[in-house]
Write a protein that binds this DNA or RNA. Structure first.
Length: 300
DNA sequence: GGCAGTCAAGTACGC
DNA sequence: GCGTACTTGACTGCC
């Protein structure tokens, strides 16, 4: 088990998701921003390695407008050295990487135009991971998408569209349960399309078909082929106390976390903490899990 | 320097 | 049919 946090580190004084407005797009601005984002990504990974945080989600804003028609710049070649250097650091330190395109990336949209645009966005994500020289265990996670008044047809449209994706994308894609499509639906897709299911604990608590956590684990874990995909990835968060249902907690709920660890024994997986205070909770989680056999031997 | 409004993108939902 | 929430950090213009 590796433990991690998404996209941002708030302790090191830089962020790798700096961006700018479309209106102010220039090649110069792009180069400057990507360069600073990559520098910060490297710093973030150095911090993580020093602290024993071995799972990290790379922000989709690393290369702003990468899949937008406005971008004609060959950032792949221009930054190839920096990407490969970062990738080599990741591999040397035994780190796991994920990416998560935002809500606008929908492969099951009724509109072909939206699928095409999403496909370009996914290709950008795959290129980032390819340029880093990471194998297919570095994943890109998306949700099933919209319902469009017909869940079954929309679920099958996901499967059909998945089959149309470039292999560079398909080999990395994993589908994540959410409020609209609970894990049972993702498993149907997985069985037909052959992609793994990324289990989101918090979404599951909001939307499920009665499966408890142990049962859900028993069902989705086999969708990951250890040789091709690596061990499963799991997203974890808990309810913000007093917040609207579905809001993410600001910091880790220690009791909930410990009970989650014990409920998921003996499954091994990499755990992404989707919690507002990011690396703070990840560090706390590492302490809380320090006696868990799945983490032993991983402290720096 | 600080604040408020806005930002590429889509969908669901309430009116 | 239309407007707004979703979710969220960072940019931008304004003071």
């Amino acid at each position: 088990m590796r433990i991690g946090y998404p996209c941002l580190n708030r302790s090191i004084g830089c962020t790798s998701n700096r961006t700018f407005r479309l209106k102010s797009y220039t090649e110069e601005r792009l180069i400057q921003t990507v360069s600073s984002n990559l520098d910060c990504l490297k710093k973030t990974l150095l911090y993580n390695a020093a602290k024993g945080i071995l799972f990290f989600r790379i922000t989709s804003d690393l290369v702003p407008f990468a899949s937008h028609p406005v971008c004609k710049f060959d950032w792949q070649s221009y930054f190839s050295f920096q990407f490969s250097e970062i990738g080599s650091f990741i591999r040397t330190n035994g780190m796991r990487i994920s990416m998560h395109p935002d809500q606008f990336t929908l492969i099951n949209s009724v509109e072909k135009r939206i699928f095409d645009r999403s496909s370009k966005e996914l290709l950008y994500h795959a290129e980032v991971l390819d340029l880093m020289g990471l194998d297919a265990s570095a994943k890109i996670q998306i949700h099933v998408g919209g319902v469009y008044n017909d869940r079954d047809a929309s679920l099958h449209r996901f499967i059909r569209r998945f089959g149309e994706l470039d292999n560079a994308i398909a080999r990395r894609l994993v589908v994540e349960n959410d409020e609209l499509y609970p894990v049972a639906d993702c498993l149907r897709i997985s069985r037909e399309a052959g992609l793994p299911v990324l289990f989101d604990v918090f979404h599951h608590s909001v939307s499920n078909k009665g499966e408890g956590i142990p049962q859900a684990f028993a069902e989705f874990a086999p969708s990951w082929d250890p040789n091709r995909d690596g061990i499963p990835m799991v997203d974890y968060s808990s309810q913000l106390p007093g917040g609207r249902p579905g809001m993410h907690a600001r910091s880790i709920d220690e009791g909930d976390f410990l009970s989650f660890l014990s409920m998921t024994m003996p499954h091994d997986f990499d755990l992404m903490l989707e919690i507002k205070d990011k690396e703070i909770s990840a560090l706390r989680a590492l302490e809380l899990a320090s006696h868990d056999p799945r983490l032993l031997g991983q402290r720096p």
